[in-house]
């Protein structure tokens, strides 16, 4: 049977993709960030998941204002990197796992999560930047990916508690899939940041630290953080951190924090990253 072994939390700042693609990931500005992921790349080589379930948000790329699904599950056999206005990122096409996707889609709806099914979808930096941070620049991504796109652009994003519950339902779905697959779940986005209007540039490192501690040790409480707290304390775009709770919900109550990295800034954003392994 398929099982979930670990979780990765990771910011998906577009500038990190640009830094990797243009060969400046070792400079004074980006170097310290990419250094924080060196451990992670080694860990990934040991962990060798058969599949990544990747929770991210689309930034008006696959979905413009016409269609805004709160939760959209990728069910395609592949996902091409999208042109976000300056040409598609020069990274490999992301391979999917349509059979597992179909199984998860069915399981979720029967579990009262009425998700949207995407049989064709391009993916933007929200999905490809975390892959770059965790795998570097391979010719092919080392395993297939099942993407889940969450609306965090138009308020309100789904509640943290709902994301947490969805994570639990995703776990149930994955664990009832007959193929022997080791799955790593990614929750992406964050940390504190505001991209817009006069308060742009807001960073709240103390809040970010508390958020990471709660995520690991007391997710029942952390998943209850209200939207107004995200908006006020973590910035209007920091609310995308609810997506980390989908990942957390898919893991055991008991996890071991293998790695934590935090850095300010990447462009306008605080970069946060954690690796969590399931423990009995």
């Amino acid at each position: 049977m398929a099982h979930i072994s670990s979780g990765v939390a990771c910011s998906h700042v577009p500038a990190l993709g640009v830094a990797s693609d243009t060969g400046i990931s070792g400079d004074d500005y980006y170097g310290p960030i990419f250094k924080g992921f060196e451990f992670s790349k080694q860990w990934m080589e040991q962990e060798k998941p058969d599949l990544i379930f990747l929770v991210y948000n689309d930034h008006c790329t696959a979905f413009d204002a016409r269609i805004i699904p709160t939760f959209a599950l990728g069910c395609a056999s592949e996902y091409a990197p999208a042109d976000e206005g300056w040409g598609p990122r020069p990274v490999p096409v992301v391979k999917g796992h349509p059979e597992l996707s179909a199984h998860i889609a069915q399981s979720l709806v029967l579990d009262s999560f009425d998700i949207t099914i995407m049989n064709e979808m391009e993916v933007d930096h929200g999905l490809t930047v975390p892959l770059t941070m965790m795998f570097g620049q391979p010719d092919q991504w080392p395993c297939p990916v099942v993407p889940l796109a969450v609306n965090v652009v138009q308020y309100p994003a789904p509640l943290g508690s709902r994301c947490y519950a969805l994570g639990k339902a995703i776990r149930k779905a994955i664990e009832s899939y007959p193929e022997d697959l080791k799955v790593c779940v990614f929750g992406t986005g964050g940390m504190s940041h505001q991209l817009q209007h006069e308060r742009a540039g807001l960073i709240n490192s103390a809040w970010d630290e508390r958020f990471m501690n709660l995520l690991v040790n007391d997710p029942d409480q952390g998943s209850m953080i209200e939207h107004i707290e995200y908006l006020r304390e973590a910035g209007s775009e920091g609310i995308e951190l609810v997506m980390w709770y989908v990942m957390r919900g898919a893991l055991n109550r008991n996890v071991e924090e293998i790695h934590r990295f935090y850095h300010v800034p990447a462009s306008n954003t605080a970069v946060g990253h954690m690796i969590l392994e399931n423990r009995p």
């Binding site: 006069e198 540039g201 800034p265 462009s267």
Partner: peptide
């Protein structure tokens, strides 16, 4: 933010706009 590119970039490098 009305800061301009250079001052804004410096603010971010110094830890961002405080809460």
């Amino acid at each position: 933010t009305g800061k301009g590119s250079t001052a804004y970039r410096e603010m971010m490098v110094a830890g961002g706009r405080p809460i």
